[in-house]
């Protein structure tokens, strides 16, 4: 098995935050690294060093098309990041893209003989449950959340990845599970929640949370693509902080809502657009779901930002934008 770092890399979901930034990062390594970005449409402002190919992963023949493309481009490593940045109300479409799209991708990788696959998952797949231990290791069962359809999709995709790894013991499959990503430029449903001026919380609950800085997260992905080791790793920042401390350091006002009341509001305005019941998000602000990052630190490198520093980096960038 050659241990040379792969030079021809394909990235799905080029228009996502991680996809786009990782493509830039990998293509800037040197002229011998060729990065092929895949997505539905070409993103605006794509650096010329990144090649682009249009593909719809949900198309019924996407697997064959993709396999041909991967073979023609002699792709050595695929980074799979074609997931919704945030859940949409169209649960079926999300399932088509995230789960069926991944099914097509793994089939194509199998057929094209791709040596290395890196899957972007999330620590949310462990689920927020009252009986979680304080630190979830990579071997903890993936229980997901019954009311978060995007998390459920990711659990299915992880099962597909595990299946792919079992059928192809000679290929390297790496699954990275970042926790909530914070930083000056990252934006998703979680960041939007935290950037409100009045933040709704659950009355009487104050769980410990962890963040990873976007740069640390991208570096972990880069090492996973180029480095010699494979496996499943949590990608988290050092330390944990209670939600109340996180919000207070940013000087945010909170709106504590009793959980039974919030969970009864089925069409709570900001959650109607996710298609999920409020539990799907707010349970993650109710119970512990902190992941143990020590295995990832050892293999993918120590993070440069702690949870607090990642949060402050987000807050300070936001304040600059707010006050010009």
């Amino acid at each position: 098995m050659p241990t040379r770092a792969p030079r021809r890399i394909a990235i799905t979901g080029l228009r996502t935050f991680l996809g786009g930034r990782l493509a830039e990062r990998l293509s800037s390594i040197g002229p011998d690294v060729h990065v092929l970005g895949l997505d539905l449409r070409k993103p605006w402002g794509l650096p010329s060093s990144v090649a682009f190919h249009e593909i719809d992963l949900t198309h019924p023949t996407a697997d064959a098309t993709l396999a041909d493309l991967l073979r023609k481009e002699e792709i050595e490593a695929v980074v799979h990041l074609a997931f919704r940045r945030e859940p949409t109300a169209d649960i079926d479409a999300d399932h088509e893209l995230e789960t069926v799209g991944s099914l097509h991708l793994f089939a194509a990788c199998q057929a094209a003989g791709v040596r290395r696959v890196v899957l972007g998952s999330t620590t949310m797949v462990y689920g927020a449950w009252p009986d979680n231990p304080n630190y979830l290791t990579e071997d903890h069962p993936l229980r997901g959340h019954p009311h978060a359809h995007n998390v459920a999709n990711r659990v299915e995709v992880e099962a597909l990845a595990a299946d792919f790894a079992r059928r192809n013991p000679d290929r390297r499959v790496t699954v990275l599970r970042p926790c909530w990503i914070m930083g000056p430029t990252h934006m998703d449903a979680v960041v939007r929640y935290f950037s409100r001026s009045v933040v709704p919380t659950l009355l009487g609950h104050d769980p410990l949370l962890q963040f990873v800085h976007e740069d640390d997260c991208l570096r972990a992905f880069e090492r996973a693509v180029r480095g010699p080791r494979s496996g499943t790793f949590n990608v988290v920042g050092r330390d944990v902080l209670p939600l109340s401390t996180i919000l207070r350091t940013a000087g945010k006002r909170t709106l504590p809502v009793p959980a039974p009341l919030l969970y009864r509001l089925r069409y709570y305005p900001s959650h109607a657009q996710t298609g999920d019941r409020p539990e799907g998000f707010y349970d993650y602000l109710r119970y512990l779901w902190v992941a143990d990052g020590s295995r990832g630190f050892e293999v993918l490198g120590e993070p440069r930002y702690s949870t607090r520093e990642a949060w402050m980096s987000f807050v300070s960038s936001r304040a600059l934008r707010q006050y010009r």
Binding site: N134, Y135, L208, D239, V240, L241, P242, S244, T245, R248, T249, G251, K252, R253, R308
Partner: peptide, 19 residues
């Protein structure tokens, strides 16, 4: 904003790994 920061004074900015 600045007065609200004072809400931090009855707690420490950092907790240990178990809170």
């Amino acid at each position: 904003e600045r007065t609200r920061m004072l809400g931090m004074r009855e707690r420490s900015g950092e907790t240990d790994e178990f809170g």
